[in-house]
Design a protein around this nucleic acid. Structure first.
Lengths: 208, 208
DNA sequence: CTTAACTTGTGAATTCATTCACAAGCCTAG
DNA sequence: CTAGGCTTGTGAATGAATTCACAAGTTAAG
């Protein structure tokens, strides 16, 4: 897997996989780059270029085998296995995520949520136990979660992140509206609603 | 405001504004592009280039006036006014957003949430009324919301979006894990957690 | 077997975004 | 007033991502 693949490429692969699954469930056998492109709001050349980074699995004149390409994309994206996830911060957003079915559906298993608030500790979020953040290190050592989802207030996010990084977790999904600093071998993805909203505000304001 | 500004640029402006507000609250008067860059995980040249699209408001040798630049960024991003927001879908994610303080703080006023579920209609989400989706068109005509946040299941998202677009709303923040089609004069931003997670999965899988 | 209609895979061309590098401006100290 | 230290603003250079365009396969029909 020599080359460095751009983030935007990976996001598109993820989108293609979603369409393929839709096609798969409707029993279609093959799909062309053009069809895939239209669904994904891009161009057929883009689709082919994206796929070409990983090999060539289409048939000229015919297109791509839907199940084969779907399988190949799952493999590339690392979705062939189960990933263990912990949620840090059992507030409203944490709770909403805990019940989000998309996680389980794609092989992301939520082990637990952590919080410092005594009233929340010991309770349940849609079947997911809320544990004391104090036992984070011990639990990680035992359960080996792969991914930590941060849903803590912005002013605590960096401190919590540092702590999570120290446990050895290498992938973080951050919902705090803060730019976080992490070592190079740790991947942090930030979902920043404030930023998206401001993007909309900008678009509404600057129309020609 | 002649030029077309890239999406990534707008996102960075939004990030700069956040740091500036932090600086502002600590009473600092000026800031250099280098300081701004370090906070935002970018380079000083990038910061200056981003700002230069909108004019030149720094002082050579000194840097930027914090309050002045913050004000200018708010103006560029259209944050000088209040934007009215409606939430469509009063499920867990809708509820989490309804209580999210970041909205109000940045001038986004949530008017109401809409749902089709009779048990939810008439209730309250953190003080925000849940109304019948059937009255959407009537309410929009009266209240003129600027932005609609979609937190409906993926398979309904396109249908709901079409309906929202027909009411004349021009900006949509979509939380459904679906690629949506909208006319060119409507801005749709999608927050896709599944995609971010798969990005993490990819990163964990493809390490050298 | 031949032709026509498709569709892939991929170098080359183009467009877009980031980084470099430096003249020009501003401030402070002496 | 001058010199030295900073920092901006911006063309030019570089780098990255996207689009073009076409040879090379594949299929189906005649």
């Amino acid at each position: 897997m020599a080359k460095r693949i751009a983030d935007s490429t990976v996001r598109r692969l993820s989108a293609y996989l979603r369409f393929l699954e839709d096609f798969e469930s409707r029993g279609l056998e093959t799909i062309s780059s053009e069809e895939l492109a239209q669904r994904g709001g891009t161009t057929s050349a883009q689709v082919r270029k994206d796929l070409s980074f990983f090999g060539s699995f289409g048939k000229r004149g015919l297109g791509y085998s839907v199940p084969e390409l779907a399988g190949r994309l799952r493999e590339i994206l690392g979705l062939g296995r189960e990933w263990k996830v912990i949620i840090i911060g059992a507030g409203k957003i944490g709770a909403a995520l805990a019940q989000y079915r998309g996680f389980r559906q794609r092989g992301f298993l939520i082990l637990a949520a952590y919080d410092a608030n005594e009233e929340k500790i010991g309770r349940n979020l849609e079947g997911i136990p809320v544990r004391d953040i104090a036992q984070l290190e011990r639990d990680v050592k035992q359960d080996h979660p792969d991914i930590a989802v941060l849903t803590v207030p912005g002013d605590e996010a960096q401190k919590v992140l540092d702590r999570v990084v120290k446990t050895g977790i290498k992938a973080i999904l951050n919902f705090a509206p803060t730019q976080l600093q992490a070592p190079a071998d740790v991947t942090v993805k930030t979902v920043n609603m404030a930023m998206e909203l401001e993007g909309l505000s900008y678009a509404l304001t600057n129309r020609e």
